[in-house]
């Protein structure tokens, strides 16, 4: 059983829909007792990182997530709140990834949000098993995880190269939305499920 953490952080149903399309059972919960029964955990999230981390704290799940030793996948804002800190609302994250989240500076050649399909490169590790650099995935974000020692995939928007995915021990994160990334996204989710 896969658990998706339910913590008032935007459109989380779409992750569940993607798992259903893969024929995988899941539960949407914020109850640690239920989370304890899951083999893998997904921390989704869209919207504001400062609100999301606050909401996770209110549910008493901050130290729970940090202490997990099973595979955990943070998606978009889910990844961002697993970082050290974010320029969004100058918020402190869980500090799992050795990474800071920065703001794209909007300009004539830098549309923000970075919205749409972009390619990922420098793919490393099991999350990207049997995948090639140059795969197209879907991004929607105004803040980006910087390059860091935990970077396992990169992407470039308006001349800024950032971490498209991170990994530290059992923790994985994608800045893009695998659940909205067609065939490539399905492959990445499948790779996570097979960890």
């Amino acid at each position: 059983m896969i658990a998706i953490i339910d913590y008032d952080a935007g459109n989380i149903q779409s992750v569940g829909n993607a798992l259903s399309r893969l024929g995988t059972e899941y539960v949407l919960t914020s109850d640690p007792a239920v989370l304890d029964g899951a083999s893998k955990i997904i921390l989704p999230g869209v919207g504001n990182a400062a609100h999301a981390v606050e909401s996770l704290r209110e549910k008493g799940l901050e130290s729970y997530v940090r202490s997990l030793r099973r595979p955990v996948l943070g998606i978009c804002v889910g990844l961002q709140i697993m970082c050290r800190r974010s320029e969004e609302g100058d918020s402190r994250g869980l500090g799992i990834f050795d990474c800071d989240v920065r703001k794209f500076e909007p300009g004539p050649d830098c549309k923000v949000p970075h919205m749409g399909w972009n390619t990922i490169s420098n793919l490393e590790g099991k999350l990207f098993k049997d995948m090639k650099g140059g795969s197209w995935v879907y991004f929607v974000h105004s803040y980006y995880p910087a390059l860091c020692p935990d970077t396992v995939a990169t992407c470039t928007h308006a001349g800024v190269m950032f971490s498209a995915a991170l990994r530290y021990e059992n923790f994985y994160g994608t800045q893009f939305h695998p659940e909205k990334s067609g065939g490539a996204g399905e492959k990445i989710l499948r790779n996570f499920l097979e960890l």
Binding site: Q13, V140, G182, G185
Partner: peptide, 8 residues
């Protein structure tokens, strides 16, 4: 629609 399609 959300259940059926895998793009935004």
């Amino acid at each position: 629609i959300a259940a059926g399609i895998d793009i935004p």
